[in-house]
Amino acid sequence: MGDTLTLAVAAGMLAAVNPCGFALLPAYLSVLVLGDDSPGTGRAVGRALALTGWMTLGFVAVFGIFGLVISPVASQVQQYLPWFTVVFGVLVALAGVWLALGRELPQLRIGTGSGKAVTRTAPAMVGFGASYAVASLTCTIAPFLAVVVAGFRAGSVGEGVLLYVGYAAGMGLLVGVAAVAVAVARRGLVTGLRRTGRWVPRVAGVLLLVVGAYVAWYGAWELRVLGGDDPADPVIDLAARIQRTLAEWVDALAP
């Protein structure tokens, strides 16, 4: 069981840098850069961990639903997933253009008893995690089914739950470490660039534009390949080399 649990954690870590959705990781990290104006280090780290927790919840929830409920018809469903990837990529790119033009993304606020407003980041992060998962399903559902769902079906329910938690922990561990690193570094970044801080959202916008364009391109490439076209593509080949390097680093780190 110990070896299987380790495998589940490792599979979760690699899921964060899968070929289909690895470009969305820097998009998520850019959200941390666009957070509070000048939080203390402790507050920034706590916020990074909280957002990562909600994002991981959305990610693994989609995998759980897909693996346990939709897997019997997975072959029929997967052919439509690239369309979601294209649409999601376009939306991310549009958000990047909006930020690059110096605009701010709208924030969802709710009233409180004191009359103040608070930003609801949890639903947004759960939604982003779910979108990240859907964009990643084509590349990562097979390992998930082999490791986690097989545990539910072949072993006890308790073993399956443990493997599921391990998978979630692996994904959250990798994203959490990256998020904390960005949160800590951001403190120095905001202090050093206070006079030019207005450029930080613009830079993040350019990053989101590049990420969204790639994700949409990847989805369109999947559709072309499913249609029988030649899979050779210079953009996908370059991204694949970068992704393989990241995956090798993650594999070398181990949980």
Rank of each mutant, 00 (worst) to 15 (best):
A204F: 01
G176K: 00
G46V: 09
G158N: 10
S131F: 05
A247D: 03
V31P: 09
G192K: 02
V87Y: 12
Y80N: 04
T121V: 14
L99S: 01
R43M: 07
G89H: 00
Y164D: 00
V86E: 02
E159P: 05
D230V: 03
R224S: 15
T140K: 04
I236P: 03
T56Y: 00
D251T: 15
E248L: 14
R43S: 12
A204I: 05
F152N: 11
G102H: 06
Q79N: 07
P72V: 02
M1T: 03
D37A: 11
L91A: 13
W83Q: 10
F152E: 11
A185D: 15
G53W: 13
V77Q: 04
A16T: 13
T138S: 10
G96H: 00
L14D: 08
G205I: 00
G227W: 11
S71L: 09
A8H: 03
A239K: 12
L207N: 11
V90L: 05
V225Q: 08
E222F: 04
V97N: 01
A27W: 06
A169R: 01
V69A: 14
G96L: 02
E248P: 05
M125T: 06
W217Y: 14
G172Q: 08
L24V: 11
G46P: 15
R109H: 14
Q79M: 12
A183I: 05
G89V: 00
G188S: 09
L145K: 09
L173D: 01
G212F: 00
A130V: 01
G113H: 09
R202N: 11
A239D: 08
A185N: 14
G40C: 06
A95R: 04
L34N: 11
A95H: 04
Q107D: 11
R241N: 10
F22N: 15
V235P: 03
A135Q: 08
F59M: 02
T140M: 13
T112Y: 08
A154E: 15
L174T: 07
V149L: 01
I110C: 10
P26F: 05
D233R: 01
T191Q: 11
L5R: 06
L49G: 05
Y218D: 10
T52P: 12
L223E: 06
S156Y: 08
M1P: 07
G212V: 00
V182H: 02
Y80K: 04
D237G: 09
D3H: 11
D230G: 07
Y218I: 02
G35N: 03
A61Y: 04
L162E: 07
T4Y: 15
V33L: 07
D233Y: 00
G192T: 02
A252G: 10
T119I: 07
V90K: 05
L189I: 14
E104P: 00
V175C: 10
L7F: 12
F88V: 03
A213W: 09
I70G: 06
L253H: 13
G67F: 06
R198A: 15
P72I: 02
L208Q: 14
F84C: 07
S30P: 02
G12N: 08
G205F: 01
P39S: 11
G176L: 01
I236S: 10
A122V: 14
G176D: 05
G172T: 09
V69W: 04
V73Q: 10
